[in-house]
Design a protein around this nucleic acid. Structure first.
Length: 304
DNA sequence: TTAGGGTTACAG
DNA sequence: CTGTAACCCTAA
């Protein structure tokens, strides 16, 4: 009767992540007593933190420790239509000197983008912005810097993130999803749900995929040779490393898509980049699935 | 106190 | 009904 289930808020999740980052996973009591987080987590127990972290790890990392039981339900749907690439065991020599940007990624969950579950669904910068504004809870709205800092702290941010964020904010404002007032951004009241039109970004994305498939029908070859090289490297990585790379690939694909979106109809180059990135992301995911690690990575749910 | 298995509530 | 997230129990 008393406890209807206390779902975790994004603030709490953020605090937990920050706490783990500061004190390390497993120091639940310490995190809880840290005045930095006690304000947000005051109604949670150390066990709650532990359980929540377990849940988050399962989603973000792929395989926490509680999946052996559920391991039975693995579906490899989304079968590869044609390319079951046979770029097999090519370069296995230890000469992997220039492992792309080998990152520590220890406790690793700095970048949890959402990766397809059934259909390919890519994390949208839009959502991160919305989440940032929502969680920041600033009555007058949040300015670009604050939003940017939030996203950079909670997720992985690309090098050109600032520029992208500016463009994205402008785009969202122009399409009416955000309201800009005195340098502050707020979420438009009549935004979500029963909108007559789908989000423009999705429309564009779908169109892109269509043309992508068409190209592919005509023997589409990844425009960038590096893609194959990167993919080859992935095969010699640990699942954790591969997962992180795949996550970044997806995020980068998203970024490229967003850039193409901004450039609208003029940037064919950006479009090509976006498709190349998408191709790499897809290939990366397939490579991952081909191995045994599960690439299910999820963002936290945004509760209304 | 924590890690991990088990249980219950809730959403799809 | 099934899967998931929050919650509970207990050995170490």
């Amino acid at each position: 009767m008393g406890a209807p289930k206390q779902k975790w808020t994004s603030e709490e999740e953020a605090a937990l992540k920050a706490g783990v980052k500061k004190h390390g996973a497993g120091k639940w009591r310490t995190i809880l007593k840290d005045p930095e987080f006690s304000g947000v987590l005051y109604l949670r127990s150390n066990v709650d933190l532990k359980d929540k972290w377990r849940n988050m790890s399962v989603i973000a990392n792929g395989w926490g420790s509680r999946e052996k039981a559920r391991l039975a339900l693995k579906r490899m749907h989304q079968s590869s239509k044609d390319d079951d690439n046979s770029m097999a065991l090519a370069n296995l020599d230890q000469s992997d000197e220039e492992l792309l940007d080998e990152q520590p990624l220890a406790v690793s969950m700095g970048s949890p983008p959402q990766i397809g579950s059934s259909k390919r669904s890519i994390i949208r910068l839009d959502n991160l912005i919305m989440e940032a504004i929502t969680n920041l809870k600033e009555p007058a709205g949040s300015n670009k810097t604050t939003i940017g800092t939030y996203i950079e702290e909670q997720y992985w941010a690309p090098p050109n993130f600032k520029r992208l964020l500016s463009a994205k904010l402008k785009f969202l404002t122009n399409t009416g999803r955000l309201i800009k007032m005195k340098r502050k951004y707020r979420i438009a009241p009549t935004s979500v749900s029963s909108d007559k039109r789908k989000q423009p970004s999705m429309l564009l994305l779908e169109g892109k995929q269509r043309s992508y498939k068409a190209d592919r029908d005509e023997v589409y070859t990844p425009t960038k040779p590096e893609i194959d090289a990167e993919l080859a490297k992935m095969r010699s990585m640990t699942p954790e490393q591969a997962a992180a790379v795949a996550a970044r690939a997806v995020a980068e694909a998203e970024i490229a898509m967003a850039e193409a979106e901004e450039a609208a109809r003029e940037a064919e180059a950006a479009e090509a980049d976006a498709e190349a990135a998408q191709a790499f992301a897809e290939a990366a995911m397939k490579t991952l699935k081909g191995r045994s690690s599960n690439p299910r990575v999820n963002l936290q749910m945004i509760r209304a």
